[in-house]
Amino acid sequence: MTEFEPKIVGFLCNWCAYAGADLAGVSRIQYPPNIRIVRVMCSGRVDPVFILEAFRSGADGVLVAGCHLPSDCHYISGNFKAHRRIMMLKKLLLQFGIEPERLRIEWVSASEGDKFATVIKDMTEEIKKLGPSPLKVQVEGLIYG
């Protein structure tokens, strides 16, 4: 059997995290190709529904990344709002039987290409250890079982 390759969806804010991800590439810092990035203007745009739907559709992990706390957010405080929301969602995930580690919130500035790559490496490793999302197994069970 081939090794389990997790599918991770990343919601990155345009101003810091997305720029940091670009810089990782510009600096040719290598990280595993498991992440699929969706650009949003601010981490505060990320609706909990996006995250739950992603898990429901088979994501093994979801990353939300924005500008550093406390005050780097381009829109003043969207990062705080995102942070609060994600912390609440993590608890909710637990009730659905999804390990909260599958959902991460990270702060990556436009100059932290190395940090972005490290986050992706870590997260990919961690989720590999956890194995496929329990929800995905259920969903696939429903379809193919």
Binding site: A21, D22, A24, G25, V26, R28, Q30, P32, I37
Partner: peptide, 10 residues
């Protein structure tokens, strides 16, 4: 930036 440059050996 977010693909070929970050996964040059894959």
């Amino acid at each position: 930036d977010q693909c070929s440059w970050a996964h040059m050996h894959e």
